[in-house]
Design a protein around this nucleic acid. Structure first.
Length: 172
DNA sequence: ACGATGATGAAC
DNA sequence: TTCATCATCGTA
């Protein structure tokens, strides 16, 4: 089907994030299994000025991937236990990414990565079929009226940035 | 309501 | 080299 091109992700994160709702996250495993899940919940992390964004403390070994041109995965471990799946967005040099927080039938970013066998081996890899994890557009239209914007989860430390409505939830 | 569990980044 | 801090979840 229509795999999203790298150019789709090389745009401002606040444009890309809501457009990912309703798209299909596709995972293929070496054994041949293919899983498809429609994306229902995302969060935008927008540049070094955004105090909730990991790149707010500058470029480090962990955050370097966020400075790459959009279209690569950013996977990291939180709370010593769960992997978080993000897709890097925007132009080269501007650190931004979309956290994929939930898909149809799986809620919660930690449970999502566990179920799809996603770990740091995918970090910095392009979101293309060849790498076993990519996103497809099958033509489904998501009504803007079915999308709710709220503040992001778990970022209370980010001062005024904690309140910004950068979380997008699609009511199916 | 809280503990598990380890990488990360900043301070010392 | 040590320490506080986490983009969470399951059990209580």
């Amino acid at each position: 089907m229509a795999q999203l091109a790298q150019s789709f992700f090389r745009r401002p994160v606040l444009e890309v994030a809501p457009e990912l709702l309703g798209k299909q996250l596709v995972r293929s495993l070496p054994a041949g299994d293919v899983f498809r899940y429609r994306i229902t919940e995302v969060e935008a992390y927008d540049g070094s000025a955004d105090l909730a964004c990991h790149a707010s403390r500058g470029k480090t070994p962990r955050t370097a991937v966020m400075y790459e041109p959009g279209g690569v995965w950013y996977v990291y471990l939180v709370y010593g236990m769960y992997h978080m799946l993000n897709i890097v967005t925007g132009e080269s040099g501007y650190p931004a990414a979309v956290l994929i927080r939930g898909v149809e039938t799986i809620s919660g970013p930690g449970r999502l990565t566990k179920k799809l066998f996603i770990n740091k081996t995918l970090n910095q890899k392009k979101a293309i079929k060849h790498n076993g994890l990519w996103i497809e557009d099958d033509g489904l239209a998501v009504s803007a009226f079915a999308v709710t914007r709220t503040p992001r989860i778990g970022v209370a430390y980010a001062k005024e940035w904690a309140e910004k409505p950068y979380r997008f939830v699609w009511q199916t």
